[in-house]
Structure formats: C-alpha cells, structure tokens
Design a protein around this nucleic acid. Structure first.
Length: 194
DNA sequence: TAGTATCA
DNA sequence: GGTA
C-alpha cells in the first residue's frame, strides 16, 4: 500500500530527531557478505539495528562501530510508523527497529527480500524523504516482474501478509537538490525485528 | 544477488 | 533493461 505524503505532518520533528540519531550513530557504508561496499549509507535506531558485514546479515542490539546500543527510537518515529501501519491495515504494529538509509545521487539498492526479522507476520513500513526515487516492487521470486513507483518526499510504502517477502529495491538515485534535505534521499524502514 | 560487469 |  502506498500512502502519498502521509509523513509530511511529522516532517520537522522527524528531521530534528534524525539529526540527533546520526550524531550518536553516524551513517556508514556497510560491506556485504560478497565483499562489496554498499552505495547506500546506513544507520539505525531502536532496540535492534540491521547490519551487514563479511559474516552476513543480522540484527544487532549494538552498533558494531561503537559497541554501544543504537539510539532509542524517537517517539515521533514510533508515532509516525504506528499511524502509517494502522492506516494500511496493521493497527497492532509496534516496530522495534528502524533502518535509516541515506542515498546520494548514484546510490541504489538492488532487488532483495527483508527476511532477517523473526516474525514475518509483522509488516514493513518504509518512509521516503528528500530526493525522489524509483521504488521497485516485485514478487516472491527474484525473477518475478517488478512494478515501479516514484517515491517522493513524505511518501510511505507499507507491505505485509502475502507481500511481506516480496523482492524490492531502489534504482540509482538521480542527481538533484531537495528543498529541505539537499542532495540526498533518506529512507526510514520500520520493522518488527525481535 | 541489501552486487558488479558487460552488452545492447 | 536483460544476461551472467
């Protein structure tokens, strides 16, 4: 489900909270098990954070860079995620993890599944901020055809149920400057990981 | 295969 | 965008 501009009411609060998070847990380019450095820079907040290194993908309660717990999930993040999940038909959703992805022009995320979470009954809530991007949403097999969605500042995608394990990704970010965020896109992905 | 390279 |  796509909620157009659903996050705009929370814009100021969310961006302020984002600055506080990245002060404690700066964006970093993680390495995949294959040994490639990701073009997207990531950080997390919440009880657990998604991380990747040569070892594999996992959720970790601590930031591997510092050994300290990830910054707590701000109330405005939680409120926004709960609001969007409820609107999309998941009124009981309470995320315990938020992966924060920063895209600069050229950055992309190839087709993948979110499957490191414990309970696939819980949906994924994905919020787009800053520069627009093309979100690809496919099927349960990597080769299934994908639909493309232009995600703009404030847009929210929610998927779950039969779509929970669908492959998805983001094509290379086009060059541009956003009024509020400048030359970047930020994506907040809320999960029930634990 | 949360990627890159190469062709078209 | 499809292939490997």
């Amino acid at each position: 489900m796509l909620l157009r501009s659903a996050a705009l009411a929370f814009e100021t609060e969310v961006l302020t909270a984002l600055d506080e998070i990245t002060l404690q847990a700066p964006f970093r380019h993680m390495v995949t098990p294959g040994g490639f450095t990701m073009s997207v820079a990531m950080t997390n907040c919440g009880e657990a954070g998604w991380v990747t290194d040569r070892t594999g993908y996992r959720y970790d309660r601590n930031d591997p860079e510092t050994g300290r717990p990830w910054p707590a999930m701000p109330t405005c993040f939680l409120d926004l995620a709960v609001h969007c999940a409820s609107r999309a038909g998941y009124p009981a959703f309470r995320p315990d993890a938020c992966l924060i992805n920063r895209y600069e022009p050229g950055a992309r995320l190839s087709l993948h599944q979110d499957r490191d979470e414990r309970d696939f009954a819980k949906p994924i809530v994905s919020i787009s901020l800053g520069l627009p991007a093309i979100f690809q949403f496919g099927g349960l097999k990597r080769d299934d055809p994908v639909k493309k969605f232009a995600m703009r500042h404030g847009d929210v995608a929610v998927w779950g149920g039969a779509s929970r394990l669908c492959y998805h990704g983001v094509t290379a970010l086009k060059e541009g400057v956003h009024d509020v965020l400048g030359r970047m896109r930020v994506n907040l992905t809320f999960r029930g990981a634990l």
